Simulated assay, not measured.
Amino acid sequence: MEQSQAFAPERFVLNCRGRVLDCRPGLPNGAHVMGILNVTPDSFWDGGRYQTLDAALRRAEVMLAEGAAIIDVGGESTRPRGRIYGQGAAPVSVDEERRRVLPVIEALAQRFPEALISVDTYKPQVAQEALEAGAHLINDQTGLRLYPEMAEVAARYGAPLILMHAIGRPGEMPHEVTYADVVADVRASLAESVARARARGVAQVVLDPGFGFGKTVAENLRLVNNLDALLALGYPVMVGISRKSTIGQVLGSLEHPVPPAERLYGTLGVTAVAVLRGATLVRAHDVRPTVEMLRLLAATLAQPRSTFATAT
């Protein structure tokens, strides 16, 4: 794809229902941070911490003060079934997911009108009501595979749609999938998701390679190191790396990964590489460390290289 087409401003400067979010590579602070707000009992890292409205609002206030550009509200865990996380996340009905997320989104929109709010859901009914309650973006972790009509909801409300690559249903993601070439396969799958979205009227999308969903440790890391291949599709790229099992396995071993509580520094390292490769949205549990790392990364890269360094 030609450079002029890949970085068309109308694709990288998102209009989030009247709010502008610049996602062009080369941002002054490296990337925007999306703070994760799981109002669930069973998410792998923070499940159960923010189930009450007061706890959720306090957490959102902290993340916004730490520099989060977006608060991503999720009411159904996608923790996969398997050796590391056991039975995986329990399925959640539409009614239960509504009960969890809608009061939080409505309260966030009223208390923090300056905040951008994303709803993390693959159910069109939940997404529509979340947008009516004040959300600005939809984060579909199935990339329209399960409910293509999600694109119609995004188009109707003028909301950017985040499309993530994954295999299977949430909570039942297989740990072993055979890819001929994980970068090429994920790129092709996301291109198909984009085509489905645009055919149904979605003007703006964001691509997420699905770090940790149905991919091996090596495949996850290879995707991060080749994000520029996804960026070349011509849309902003988001990564969700925060404290995932790949980090634990690299720092420990396949059989004995370090626990989530000890994965922050590894997360920051891989996140830095992702931003260097072109990601401009970072989904994170730990907002302040991520924001500070990105600021220093961008400030360092903004300094000129010396003639001595470039000569050698």
Rank of each mutant, 00 (worst) to 15 (best):
N226K: 10
L227F: 11
L227H: 10
A229Q: 15
L230G: 09
L230C: 11
A232R: 14
A232W: 06
L233M: 12
L233F: 04
L233N: 11
L233Y: 08
L233W: 02
G234I: 07
Y235L: 12
P236M: 09
P236Q: 11
V237C: 12
V237D: 10
V237L: 11
M238Q: 15
M238N: 14
G240A: 14
G240C: 08
G240H: 04
S242L: 10
S242E: 07
K244H: 08
T246I: 13
T246V: 15
T246L: 10
I247Q: 04
G248Q: 05
G248V: 00
Q249F: 00
V250W: 01
V250Y: 04
L251A: 14
L251V: 05
L251G: 10
G252F: 00
G252A: 07
S253Q: 07
S253R: 04
E255D: 14
E255H: 10
E255W: 01
E255P: 02
P260F: 01
P260H: 02
P260V: 06
A261Q: 15
E262G: 11
R263G: 03
R263K: 06
R263E: 06
L264K: 09
L264D: 06
L264E: 11
L264I: 08
G266K: 04
G266Y: 01
G266M: 01
T267F: 05
T267C: 13
G269K: 05
V270C: 10
T271D: 03
T271E: 10
T271C: 10
T271H: 04
A272M: 12
A274Q: 06
A274H: 07
A274D: 11
V275S: 01
V275T: 00
L276P: 10
G278P: 12
A279D: 01
T280K: 02
T280G: 03
R283C: 01
R283Q: 01
A284D: 00
H285W: 05
